[in-house]
Design a protein around this nucleic acid. Structure first.
Length: 409
RNA sequence: GCCCGGAUAGCUCAGGGGUAGAGCGCAGGACUGUGGAUCCUGUCGUCCCGGGUUCGAGUCCCGGUCCGGGCCCCA
């Protein structure tokens, strides 16, 4: 019986890994160009870290287990909580703001489907220490820049959870939180019946529905102002000012809710326009406060996470391959072939025969692996200190000295 | 947790109650100093697992597992 992969996991073959590494490289390059530096936290953490952040309910969707010492642990389902935990433990003395980025695998116990796996990768950033609209604008523009550079077709929606919170401020906390959840799900019918059920007054009801339907360009702020006249819109306006100056394309969407309490202000999401089916969200982020929940000082932060696998699925990047050379040798000259190969490896990818095949088979293999050049080591050429070089694309072949060989490759 | 569709060679898949198939791939040869084309040969299977029906099940029935898609969820 063959041993299969665990459910929801994948094997990545060389072609796919090259593509994934190429995408990863773009993400790293752009994040680093904004001054973000890479961090890495453990693959598993205390389960508590995630239940404090998201509630007991998420245990169902986490790989949670007891270790041999009886500790409750969990494979990380995301990286924001671990990064903030790390910040609280080790980085509070560092000069603010802190700019961190991460690229790592995460684990969730969910039913797999297109674009959703039990082991998946996230690339994300956290900008810690600022509650300013400038911080939101920086992080949003960084996410935008990455997706744009990867030539992904996407829609960026930016919202502000403060509006809904302000609107619901006089309601019971549980009721407000339930309403937020329904809005987040875009469950309009559910929302209607819940509002009936809880006897929310009709003015407030109208306000909620008008606000949730507000999606569009910047001027919807004026409509929002009519619905909630005493809310301070200067933060979101400042974010818009900067994004407009940077030519970032976005839609304001006051229906983005996020049920969870630690989101404090600006939130944003990006959706791929095609190629992903139901799981089309490729980026999510916003400003939040978590540090105090993990025993640190109350510290504002803002960040995002990109769904790396979903992006890899729809992204068409050119993978730049190094020149590939196969050193082909006649029987008895394998040692020479290894020496020549060694000499060339700082210039190209060089492979030699290890199957003890004849020259014909070696060339055939060179062709199969899509090599650019074959260096043929034969007795006749070697007598004059030379080798034959064959261009496998054109078929052209010439005899060159060892010095000339370095120039050709 | 729910719904739909799958599972047969390394891969893609056809078939169908009576001896397990094709194409591709891989390996070798035709061709012992030269790749891609062609031809030949070889390699390979608990026909997903377990149970049932049957003289006989890879095929039909039931249960399970896994995969794909959708729902739920999505920190």
């Amino acid at each position: 019986m063959k041993i299969e992969r665990p459910r929801g996991t994948r094997d990545f073959l060389p072609d796919e890994m090259e593509k994934r590494r190429a995408i990863e490289k773009v993400m790293r390059r752009i994040a680093e160009s904004y001054g973000y530096r890479e961090v890495l936290t453990p693959t598993f953490e205390h389960l508590e870290l995630f239940t404090i952040k998201s509630g007991e309910g998420i245990i169902e969707e986490i790989y949670a287990f007891k270790d041999k010492g009886g500790r409750d642990l969990a494979l990380r389902p995301e990286l924001t909580a671990p990064v903030i935990r790390m910040f609280v433990n080790e980085c509070t003395g560092m000069p603010k703001p802190l700019r961190f980025y991460y690229f790592a695998n995460c684990f969730r116990y969910e039913r797999p489907q297109k674009g959703r796996y039990r082991e998946f990768w996230q690339f994300g950033v956290e900008l810690i220490g600022s509650a300013s609209p400038l911080a939101d604008a920086e992080v949003i523009s960084l996410a935008y820049r990455i997706m744009d550079e990867l030539k992904i077709e996407f829609d960026l929606h930016i919202g502000h959870v403060g509006l809904l919170r302000h609107l619901l401020r006089d309601l019971d906390e549980n009721v407000a939180s339930k309403i937020m959840r329904l809005i987040d799900k875009k469950d309009i019918e559910g929302l209607e019946s819940y509002l009936d059920e809880t006897k929310v007054d009709s003015d407030l009801r109208d306000s909620i529905f008008s606000l949730v339907e507000l999606v569009g360009s910047r001027d919807i702020i004026e409509s929002a102002r009519e619905i909630i006249p005493n809310f301070d819109f200067s933060h979101i306006e400042k974010v818009c000012d900067i994004l407009d100056a940077l030519d970032v394309e976005y839609k304001l969407d006051f229906g983005i809710a996020r049920g969870l309490d630690y989101y404090t202000g600006v939130v944003f999401e990006a959706y791929a326009r095609e190629g992903l089916g139901a799981q089309n969200q490729i980026c999510g982020g916003g400003s939040y406060r978590l540090a105090h929940l993990f025993g640190g000082d109350d510290t504002p932060a803002t960040g995002f996470a990109l769904g790396f696998d979903r992006i890899a699925e729809i992204c068409k990047v050119e993978v730049v391959r190094k020149k590939k050379v196969v050193v082909v040798s006649f029987k008895g000259l394998e040692g020479e072939a290894f020496k020549i190969a060694s000499m060339l490896r700082n210039r190209a990818v060089v492979v030699t025969d290890v199957m003890e095949r004849n020259v014909k088979k070696q060339l055939s293999y060179a062709n199969d692996i899509n090599a650019d050049l074959a260096v043929i080591v034969g007795e006749r050429e070697l007598r004059d200190g030379k080798v034959a070089v064959k261009d496998l694309k054109s078929g052209e072949q010439k005899t060159v000295s060892m010095e000339e060989l370095l120039d050709v490759i």
